[in-house]
Nucleic acid binder design. Structure first.
Lengths: 236, 236
DNA sequence: ACCTGAACACCGTTCAAGT
DNA sequence: ACCTGAACACCGTTCAAGT
């Protein structure tokens, strides 16, 4: 019998029960998210996955928010940073880089939401930051504007991902209904009480999330070139 | 004795137990949020406040997200729309209007977070939209750009409110700690591995949320003037 | 010193059964 | 027809007590 059943006492079929360390916990959390979505990555569920009680996790992770932040940073390993060192117009490359970041988040809107509430600052986030700053440097953006623009760009991408959970993709009829209700509300605005809304009409709902995203990135980049930072920002 | 104890059988001291209608439910939810914060505005807690069981609320409200959206729209009644019809530079007035919106949200970061996930479209939100659009119209912003810029501006304000929960205000030592941890992380970035982060240093953390907010609004407004919307946006 | 069982204080949502 | 008690299936976090 080809069995190796004696090797591990049948504790379940977990593919290699990771050690109870911060790394093991976060890695298991990432797997769990990939398999069942962020909403299942709870302290209790994760503890069950690791064959222990929830209290044990609090030795390595301060709370659920910190856990989710760690998961996000892990995910950020997947951002394509290559545009930072590629050929071509720096603006286009910057937008490509930011799109790579945002598209990753689009697949995990729950994580994007937690990133809006508290931007992470793990290893991979730092690498992303460095890449954005080096492109802004290459483009000759002044340091004070670059510092503020960095945040605006990442926040814009993050917030956009948190909002549209891939609208246009099939399924998800709940959101589809909501969207149609809103479209009806906007389109039904009276010309008398809301003349500007009525005047723009369908224009208000035009464009895909991606088209608007790219446009927004360019607006921020172009706008920063025309908007000085006030005074001397207080140096911390 | 001066008692009016017979008037109402002592059901508790609720100040006028509202009727069980959508309006009554939302009004009670707003009161509850003002008194105890959004995190207490749960279906169960709200039901208790209304002397009924949670199931009853589902007759009037589809779910918690819809409840929070209704609370937010109610809150938006407090936005100061007067800059839309005041004297002076349209850009300054637009930023004033947007600051009024954002400052309201700053006091209820939980609501701001739910607004990032699903922008509302109630009565007061529609009024805010109309006011922003009328200022963009006054400023001569082309209709297609105005339609997209509107969303970018509101999203930027909303996301900013969702993030900084009034940092700098006293208390809230938890967030303060987090912020210092991040500051340490950013400032400690090696000059060898992250040269641009090291080069900018304290500049990355400079400015108050309000200063950055105002700057960001101007960046978006100025940027839109220099960034055409692509092609013909598909008309719904 | 390190870990955790059990408890505390909650959740959202559904549905069968009542009026 | 309208409403809701009770149940289902969960939560985060703490702390006293064990090893």
């Amino acid at each position: 019998m080809k069995g190796n059943s004696a090797a591990r006492p049948s504790r379940r079929e977990r593919p290699a029960k990771p050690a109870l360390t911060r790394e093991g916990i976060v890695a298991t959390a990432v797997d769990l998210m990939r398999a069942e979505g962020l909403e299942r990555v709870t302290m209790r569920r994760l503890a069950r996955e690791l064959d222990t009680g929830p209290a044990s996790l609090y030795v390595y992770v301060r709370n659920t928010a910190e856990l989710h932040a760690a998961v996000l940073d892990e995910l950020l390993a997947g951002v394509d940073l290559s545009p930072a060192t590629a050929e071509g117009d720096w603006r286009e490359r910057l937008v490509r880089l930011l799109m790579s970041y945002t598209e990753l988040l689009f697949e995990h809107p729950g994580l994007a939401r937690s990133a809006v509430a508290a931007r992470p600052f793990g290893k991979h986030f730092l690498n992303l930051t460095e890449a954005v700053l080096s492109l802004l440097h290459e483009g000759g953006v002044a340091p004070d504007r670059a510092a503020w623009l960095l945040d605006a760009l990442l926040q814009y991408g993050t917030a956009t991902a948190a909002e549209h959970a891939w609208r246009g993709a099939d399924e998800d009829s709940q959101n589809e209904e909501d969207w149609e209700a809103m479209a009806a509300g906007v389109m039904g605005a009276s010309e008398r009480t809301h003349p500007r809304i009525a005047a723009l009409g369908a224009l208000l709902l035009s464009g895909s999330p991606q088209e608007r995203l790219v446009w927004g990135f360019h607006v921020l980049i172009n706008g920063a070139a025309h908007t000085p930072v006030p005074d001397v920002p207080r140096p911390l």
